[in-house]
């Protein structure tokens, strides 16, 4: 272990002080205020001027169809985007795990979506999905995938799939890199031994690759899930939760309730519910990380 040091114990405190101040001021204190606000009825952003109403916001929340809709959207978006992101990440990681000329360049191309600013990714997709002049409508109709150009972002049953596609395109590199690192930790001998035992590629994938990726998979999928619950920029910039609330996740519902409808206490209650869900998944995440480390 690192030898712990001499001198005053105050040094770490001095070194860490600025971090503490910033994180408490910008992240922790607002969260605590947000939780407090959820017990108030206020349209003004200072809860000292609101009225304490106990759990009334939460009672109203559980009878609010928009809240249940948002919960459904969060779950659907979470499951679909995590599945798509993971599948692309795994597929590309397996492709890149082979030896071939120009692997470095190809890997960089596969990482590029991750390097683009999220709002730019959104703008490109909105343009490509344009109902009249969008190139994807052109390609999809030419290939016979759809019979006529579709108004992707103005129809509630098409907006969510479009959002999932954008998410998967932008986020798969993260999954790919993590899986790739996991693949490289699987000892070569295991594959050789399996081959000697007569295992084909599919069987090697099922009996060597997948078990080898187990701990990486659990952590990655939880991380992607947490990110999907917290995601704001991409969804807000693309649809603002619309059309007809079809992409309104809990994060977006919190923001819209506060800044569009000025129902601050109610928004805080939505946000606090989201926080509780996140904390639950985070506990599982840390537990899984710890398991992965001990294994």
């Amino acid at each position: 272990m690192l030898s712990t040091i001499k001198r005053s114990n105050l040094l770490p405190l001095w070194l860490l002080g600025p971090v503490g101040v910033l994180l408490i001021l910008i992240l922790i204190w607002p969260i605590l205020q947000g939780i407090a606000l959820s017990f108030y009825n206020t349209r003004i952003l200072t809860y000292s001027e609101g009225r304490f109403i106990g759990l009334a916001n939460f009672n109203a929340l559980f009878q609010d169809e928009y809240f249940w809709n948002s919960l459904r959207v969060t779950a659907t978006y979470g499951i679909a985007s995590v599945t798509a992101t993971y599948a692309l990440g795994l597929g590309f990681a397996l492709l890149l795990n082979r030896e071939f000329a120009g692997r470095g360049v190809i890997r960089t191309i596969f990482i590029l979506p991750w390097a683009i600013p999220e709002v730019v990714a959104v703008l490109i997709f909105v343009w490509m999905l344009d109902p009249q002049f969008g190139v994807l409508n052109y390609l999809f109709t030419s290939l016979g995938l759809i019979s006529e150009p579709l108004p992707w972002l103005s129809q509630s049953h098409l907006a969510l799939p479009a959002l999932v596609a954008l998410t998967a395109w932008q986020q798969f590199p993260l999954a790919m890199l993590i899986i790739l690192a996991g693949l490289q930790m699987i000892p070569r001998e295991q594959y050789e031994a399996a081959t000697i035992d007569g295992a084909g590629p599919v069987s090697r994938f099922i009996h060597v690759t997948l078990p080898g990726l187990r701990s990486v998979n659990i952590i990655l999928i939880l991380l992607l899930t947490l990110n999907s619950f917290r995601r704001v920029t991409m969804i807000y910039a693309m649809t603002r939760g619309g059309p007809a609330r079809s992409t309104e996740t809990l994060s977006i519902l919190t923001y819209n309730t506060a800044f569009e409808y000025q129902r601050i206490g109610y928004a805080a209650a939505v946000g606090t519910t989201l926080l509780i869900i996140l904390l639950f998944f985070s506990v599982v995440y840390f537990w899984a990380t710890k398991q992965g480390k001990d294994a």
Binding site: L23, I28, P30, L37, T46, R230, T272
Partner: peptide
């Protein structure tokens, strides 16, 4: 703990009070 914890907080809830702060 503080650093790990602050990493998982939802930005959507943070910005509501942060706007006033």
């Amino acid at each position: 703990v503080l650093i790990l914890f602050s990493q998982l907080l939802p930005a959507a809830l943070i910005v509501v009070p942060l706007f006033v702060i």
